[in-house]
């Protein structure tokens, strides 16, 4: 089991029980066009765990996810203060190189967006741009990653065909394989199953639970049952603030905060 994580408020940061967090957010504030979107976020996420970010629409959970790989940089009128440490390095620091940061964080988007190329090239794309040219090596990466996402047997005879010919569930698994092929440390999921049928959803969830052994996973979801099925920790965001953070069972079954209680019971959505 992991060390017990906690919300690091200013008072408790001194006696944080988490000594070596994979991701640590310190005093993070995000403003978009002057609106205060994320307020004073302090958070530490342990290695090899799944954390689900839940909360009502518009509470800032997707923005929080996007600050982790600096996609939030592209938003109009955005202003960010505070720091996000990954393995102790500030990704908003002066020397931080954004392509390198993003390489460490695989993103699984809401809908699958395969690149406009073949199935093979989708997986090989990342390794290629990061310098792997050897065909045999690439073949091996493609096979390994497609096996990782349980897609190999379904596509091994048509690797050269366009990825858009796959079913939407297959496409999402391909996108996961494509992300894994660049060897990230962290997987970010932005409601990654919302476009999928129940069967494909179950497959993605299974994969995420398996992948937890090697990666730190952060998911945004609005499906509480999904959060319960896959995650070790739940982070409840409300109005741009972290209201509650703790082990899944605790947040869902025994929420400390009144608003969390109402959200979990389905009174707020």
């Amino acid at each position: 089991m992991h060390a017990y994580p906690s919300i690091e408020t200013k008072e408790s940061s001194l006696n944080s029980p988490l000594t070596d967090p994979h991701i640590q957010i310190k005093d993070l504030n995000v403003y978009i066009d002057g609106r205060h979107i994320l307020k004073n976020i302090n958070l530490a996420l342990p290695n090899n765990s799944v954390t689900s970010i839940i909360g009502p629409s518009g509470c800032g959970k997707t923005t929080l996810l996007k600050t982790l790989n600096r996609l939030v940089d592209d938003t109009k009128g955005v202003e960010i203060t505070g720091s996000v440490l990954v393995n102790g390095e500030d990704i908003y620091g002066k020397d931080a190189e954004v392509t390198h940061i993003r390489k460490k964080m695989g993103l699984l988007s809401q809908k699958p967006y395969p690149l406009p190329m073949s199935i093979y090239d989708n997986v090989a794309y990342g390794p290629r741009i990061h310098g792997t040219k050897n065909t045999k090596e690439l073949d091996k990466i493609v096979e390994t990653q497609l096996r990782n996402v349980a897609l190999w047997d379904e596509v091994k005879d048509r690797l050269g065909q366009s990825a858009s010919g796959l079913s939407i569930g297959q496409q999402q698994r391909l996108c996961l394989a494509r992300g894994l092929a660049v060897e990230p440390e962290i997987i970010l999921g932005d409601e990654s199953t919302s476009a999928l049928d129940p069967l494909s959803t179950a497959k993605i969830e299974e994969l995420l639970i398996e992948l937890k052994q090697d990666y730190t996973i952060v998911l945004v979801t609005h499906i509480l049952r999904q959060a319960r099925r896959v995650s070790d920790y739940i982070l409840f965001v409300y109005g741009g603030e972290i209201l509650e953070f703790g082990p899944t069972e605790q947040v869902l079954l025994n929420p400390q905060h009144e608003i969390t209680k109402q959200y979990v019971k389905g009174f707020i959505s």
């Binding site: 993003r102 993103l107 988007s109 990342g126 741009i129 996108c175």
Partner: peptide
């Protein structure tokens, strides 16, 4: 977004 997330320039 997903393309940038692969670490592309």
């Amino acid at each position: 977004n997903v393309t940038l997330s692969l670490g592309t320039t």
